[in-house]
Simulated assay, not measured.
Amino acid sequence: MNRRNTWFRVVCLTGVALTAFALGGFANQKGQRDSNFASQTIDLGMVVSDLDKSLKFYKDVLGFTEVPGFKVPGAFGLDTGLSNNIDLDVHVLVLGEGETATKLKLMQFKSTPGARVDNTFIHSSYGFRYLTIPVKNLNLAVENAAKGGGKPIAKCPVPLPQGFPAGLALANYRDPDGNLVELVGPWSKK
């Protein structure tokens, strides 16, 4: 397996874990005291095709805040299997404040662009398929997204189906690379 595929799989698995955590935010978390995890949140690294467009989407449409990023030397990337000796310039976006804030780490590789995957539907490709972002007020989140130029896809917002908590709905968006981002929270149909 080449390093690009390995990196992609790491990003995909991280996305799956982030989604599981986000959905778990609505449920009671048991056994945290016995866990070896240092944090209840995880960071997600995402390679993007156009850093400026992606930063604008995640900040202006979804409401992330950019905090100081960091650089990773190419040799370290090679030694850890993250890259094939390419320096990383990582832009960090957060939801919330403090050490437990979810972090989305964006990076672009202009000299070695990655391959696109089929993002038509979540079942179109294996791996990381979407981000779930729980919100306190979906109506407000959709309004704020529209102010930033975001448009929900399909018929969104859509109430969650029977069996999920009543009063919650989901609004899906696509980032500049076609990745699905879902906002989930309390919603009232206007």
Rank of each mutant, 00 (worst) to 15 (best):
E99V: 15
P113L: 10
K103C: 10
Q108H: 13
I133A: 05
L93D: 00
H91F: 06
H123K: 13
K110A: 15
V117M: 07
N119Q: 11
D118Y: 03
D87S: 07
P113A: 11
I122A: 04
E97T: 15
R129F: 05
Q108R: 12
Q108C: 11
S125T: 15
I122S: 12
H91N: 08
T120R: 07
I133Y: 00
E97G: 09
N137P: 14
I133Q: 03
I122D: 11
E99F: 10
K103T: 02
A101F: 01
P113S: 11
L106W: 02
V92Q: 08
M107I: 06
Y130R: 15
V135H: 01
L131H: 06
V117G: 04
T120W: 02
H91W: 06
I86D: 15
T102I: 09
T100R: 11
V92R: 14
D118I: 08
Y130F: 15
L93M: 09
F121E: 12
D89Q: 09
I86K: 07
Y130H: 15
V92P: 02
V90G: 01
I133D: 02
N119Y: 10
V92W: 10
Q108S: 12
L138P: 00
H123P: 08
L106A: 11
M107G: 00
T102R: 13
R116P: 03
K136W: 00
I86S: 12
T112Q: 14
S83L: 04
V94P: 00
G98A: 12
M107S: 07
N119T: 15
F121A: 10
T132Y: 03
V94D: 00
S111M: 02
T112I: 13
T102W: 05
S124F: 04
V90H: 06
G114M: 13
G127S: 08
L131N: 06
S111Q: 09
G96S: 04
T102K: 12
A101W: 01
S83D: 10
L88R: 03
V117W: 02
K103W: 02
L88W: 09
E97S: 14
R116V: 05
K105N: 05
N137C: 13
R116G: 04
V94E: 07
T100P: 00
V117Q: 06
S83M: 10
S111T: 07
